[in-house]
Design a protein around this nucleic acid. Structure first.
Lengths: 101, 101
DNA sequence: TAATCATATGAAGTATATTTCATATGTATT
DNA sequence: AATACATATGAAATATACTTCATATGATTA
């Protein structure tokens, strides 16, 4: 069902920066400036990343004056991360996963 | 906490062929030849894809003579796919997700 | 044990996604 | 209304992942 909806969703998660953003927003919602400082990453990178995360409704925004505060759509993501944590804990002992192709 | 284990895992899922393999194995375990016929894809592509899926323990293998039968490690994957299905059903109405970057 | 079948693998070529940089847009402040 | 601040966006450059093709390996059969 909706097979192709998997692809863009996972493409979003298969990215170090986007995952860092997700993990950062998991603690607390943040605006773009705060994210750039928190992750020490250039602003446009953050904006580009947020843009695709927002596409898939992984994050949402609210505008407050000139700032835009991004926050996690926790519904889906937190459950997925927990599943992966369990998986990794059980199955990913080796360094094999480092060199995916 | 194992942050980087997310990355290779999702990289595996962010791929049409690998997802097709997963969905095919969801129905029934198969050897490489069966997968190539089922998905109409060249053998080495299937083997490469299986290799990285196996890395992350998304699939497992058992050898039977000269055949190798691959099967899903259903533990994690099926739950994740179900979460994504729910997510997609609720949040992915638009064609926005098609043009990720 | 030579031949065949099933699968794996390396490396170059190609496709796709990310980064970078310059600039645009939109909101607030003076 | 001009300036400054916050964020977004386009496009070229770069990095990364995938595909292809030729060949290797390992198991079975004649």
């Amino acid at each position: 069902m909706i097979k192709n909806s998997y692809y863009p969703f996972f493409t979003n998660l298969a990215n170090k920066l986007k995952m860092d953003i997700i993990l950062s927003l998991r603690k607390k919602e943040k605006n773009v400036t705060e994210l750039t400082k928190d992750l020490v990453v250039e602003q446009s990178k953050i904006s580009h990343a947020l843009s695709s995360l927002k596409c898939c409704n992984i994050v949402k925004v609210k505008q407050l004056g000139k700032q835009r505060t991004y926050y996690l759509n926790k519904d889906t993501i937190l459950k997925i991360l927990k599943l992966i944590d369990n998986h990794a804990h059980t199955y990913c002992k080796s360094e094999c996963c480092e060199k995916i192709r």
